[in-house]
Design a protein around this nucleic acid. Structure first.
Lengths: 235, 235
DNA sequence: AGGCAGAACTGATAAAAATCATAATGAGAA
DNA sequence: TTCTCATTATGATTTTTATCAGTTCTGCCT
């Protein structure tokens, strides 16, 4: 974990779409001055389930998975983070240990804002607490919808939905319909909530049907419309 | 929906354990003066999925389910509310339509705080936004854990877990080990995330095993320890 | 380049859970 | 009270999904 050149928050173009979008002036400078910026290599863990939170992490550039380990040691991926996303705020707010592990999916640049500074900003800048509430609200809604689908929809539909979700989250590779993230089949299964073999089987099924195209870990969506139909998204 | 006698927030004993625990003085009076208090009968709907939020609901006394209707019209119960809980705040914060329906499980008294007043209080009373963030954080954690269990644990374990959850949420009837809430078997299934017949079958299985005792809709827990073991809660 | 380990794949089988069908019970309305 | 309809219950069957076993593929390391 190497430190990379310090990025001035006021010049960070990801800020506009982040919870700091309305934070300006002194509070923002405070944050910027006290943070540290690091590079994480693929596979590295930013924080561990059960660990103590000492601050929040702000993704400058990167792709990160947040996962919970279930009773039998099986991973469940509960969220994916991209540029501009903030991680670890929840545990900090309620002053509890992390209940998820953040693992880097590809080399990423992440800024760390120490606890005290973040909490101070939260107290002084009411727009930040507002953005926090909105963020939490949205994530809660997403989690509840996901819950419903997990309980009610068959694996094939959930897999299609997951692929569309990956596309929405990370977009396509330049000039292609390949989803811009590399996940193992196991990770895809842990996102969908199924067994690895089942995920593999259904992926190659969609491949045969011409809806998607597989080349190694790269997945391209050949027919978004049909994939949406498979996902059966009416709500 | 009849209006019941106005309850002064400052004298409401549920306030201590609610998000208004640190709200005092003028802000609290404002809330108290502008709210309306209503009685809802069993089965009545407080708000509908898709409807516009005009304020937040504060449960004075009652038991309420929050549910989402899935693609095939099947209900998924995503949360249960009890005395002191607040409902509908999430949609209001992000200014979206309700994404869940709130239905009263037994006759309840609920106060309604109009949108403007609540938002005003949120701006003026920073402790309230803090409590909101904590509440949202906790609910998000719960949702993510539930998600993981839904994806990884068999129905029997989830049913046992649900029964323990019901006990934690609503407690026992006075001088008994009967859980203090009446749900149909279908509702239990929609909470667990399974088919009604499966829920019925597994309930009678636990009944035969002597872990619980069924009498109509009343469920009593005869052996909490064994039920916890069935739920397989290691995390 | 060769070999090795992990990942991806495929088939067979087993287990879990949903669905369908049908009967019994019970609560509320006329 | 009796009738009716919804809920509960149970059995049989099918479908879905997981698990197990074995093979091929691929990237990586020396």
């Amino acid at each position: 974990m190497k430190t990379f050149e310090h990025v001035d928050c006021s010049r960070c173009d990801k800020r506009q779409s982040s919870i700091f979008c309305n934070t300006h002036g002194e509070p923002l400078e405070d944050l910027s001055d006290s943070k540290t910026c690091s590079v994480y290599k693929k596979g590295q863990v930013i924080f561990h389930e059960g660990g103590h939170p000492f601050g929040v992490y702000c993704v400058n550039k990167g792709k990160i998975k947040l996962s919970i380990i279930g009773d039998e040691g099986k991973e469940q991926i509960v969220r994916l983070a991209r540029d501009g996303d903030v991680l670890g705020y929840r545990s900090m707010l309620v002053n509890e240990r992390y209940n998820a592990t953040a693992t880097v999916l590809e080399d990423s640049q992440v800024c760390f804002i120490p606890r005290e500074i973040f909490m101070k900003t939260l107290r002084s800048d009411s727009s930040l607490s507002f953005e926090m509430m909105k963020l939490l609200s949205n994530q809660l809604r997403e989690a509840e919808v996901k819950l419903t689908h997990l309980a009610q929809k068959p694996v094939r539909e959930r897999l299609a939905e997951t692929l569309l979700f990956l596309k929405e989250t990370y977009g396509y590779e330049p000039d292609s319909t390949q989803i811009a993230v590399q996940l193992t089949r196991e990770e895809i299964a842990n996102l969908v909530g199924t067994a690895t073999e089942t995920a593999i089987r259904l992926l190659s099924e969609l491949n045969k049907e011409g809806v998607i195209e597989l080349s190694g870990k790269k997945i391209s969506i050949k027919d978004v419309r049909e994939l949406s139909r498979v996902a059966n998204l009416n709500d």
